[in-house]
């Protein structure tokens, strides 16, 4: 039992990060139809900028805020410089643009920062909490709590605010949204900023546990993507649940089957979902306009 609980905790911790990455994916996908492979780089930037800002003397909370703001700016730049000029391009071009952006950001991070592995202190000390024979790091609680806070915040934003509804309207039908006076360009920019900020926040939460380096982004992007697929592409609730489930699945694979193949869990999930329920857990059946 204590063993299971231990795997459960570690699964929820990584799952929280995957869930945040998947949410970021979903926001951009809904607003623009772009599958953003640079999503993982936002997580990397969040962690790396915090590390270096903290090392430069900024207190940790301020360094984290600076990192989130800077990453949001990168997200906006990505939209303005690479996605907007390519509007109307085929899916394969957009995928290559975001993969190019992710390689570019990784290359830049490697030059601006370095190739070392970094970390910063946990928010509330390194003493683990003991629960029923298992231990959980306080930082894990921060990560899980942070992910839920973001999810609830987003839900409130999308259902309770005019701006959030404007984003939803744009993702439903861009032209119709324009016709009722929504500034869809602004909505796009906002979505990229929001998504980048969420990614950076995930990076800040997880770095004290998993550490970070310039090349962690790609793996996280693929996992987050798998989570989003599992939940049903384009559905925020699905993305969140899918990310958490994927984390659990990975931790259980590592615990009970083989730690070598824990990384495989995500991709087995992708293939299984596509084979047996292509709409994902929460997705709705899509139809095509002729």
């Amino acid at each position: 039992m204590s063993e299971f609980l231990q795997f459960l905790f570690s699964g929820l911790t990584v799952g929280a990060v995957y869930a945040l990455v998947a949410l970021g994916f979903t926001i951009i996908y809904n607003a623009s139809g772009v599958v953003n492979f640079a999503q993982g780089e936002f997580v990397m930037l969040g962690g790396m900028i915090t590390v270096f800002a903290h090392a430069a003397g900024l207190p940790l909370p301020l360094a984290a805020l600076a990192a989130i703001a800077a990453t949001a700016a990168v997200g906006v730049a990505l939209n303005k410089l690479a996605i907007e000029p390519a509007r109307g391009a085929p899916v394969v071009s957009l995928i290559i643009i975001t993969i190019g952006a992710s390689i570019f950001i990784r290359g830049a991070a490697q030059l601006i920062f370095d190739k070392q592995i970094h970390s910063f202190p946990a928010f509330s000390g390194d003493d683990p909490i003991h629960v029923l024979g298992a231990t959980i790091l306080t930082q894990s609680l921060w990560a899980i709590g942070g992910a839920f806070a973001v999810f609830v915040g987003l839900w409130l934003f999308f259902t309770r605010t005019i701006l959030g509804r404007a984003v939803l309207a744009t993702s439903n039908n861009r032209l119709a949204a324009q016709l009722v006076g929504i500034n869809t360009d602004f909505v796009m920019t906002l979505s990229f900023a929001l998504s980048a900020a969420i990614g950076a926040f995930a990076g800040v939460l997880i770095t004290p546990i998993t550490m970070t380096s310039y090349d962690v982004g790609l793996g996280l992007a693929l996992k987050g993507f798998a989570g989003a697929m599992l939940g049903g592409m384009g559905n925020p609730k699905g993305a969140f649940a899918g990310g958490l489930l994927l984390g659990l699945f990975e931790a259980m694979t590592a615990g009970y089957l083989s730690s070598q193949y824990k990384e495989a869990a995500a991709f087995v999930v992708i293939l299984a979902v596509l084979f047996f329920m292509p709409q994902g857990l929460f997705g709705s059946k899509s139809t095509d306009r002729v």
Binding site: A82, I97, G100, A101, I103, I105
Partner: peptide, 14 residues
């Protein structure tokens, strides 16, 4: 190398 490769990919596609 990575910086330039990424840039080339984006510029050509745009």
């Amino acid at each position: 190398e990575q910086l330039i490769l990424g840039l080339v990919m984006m510029l050509v596609m745009i």
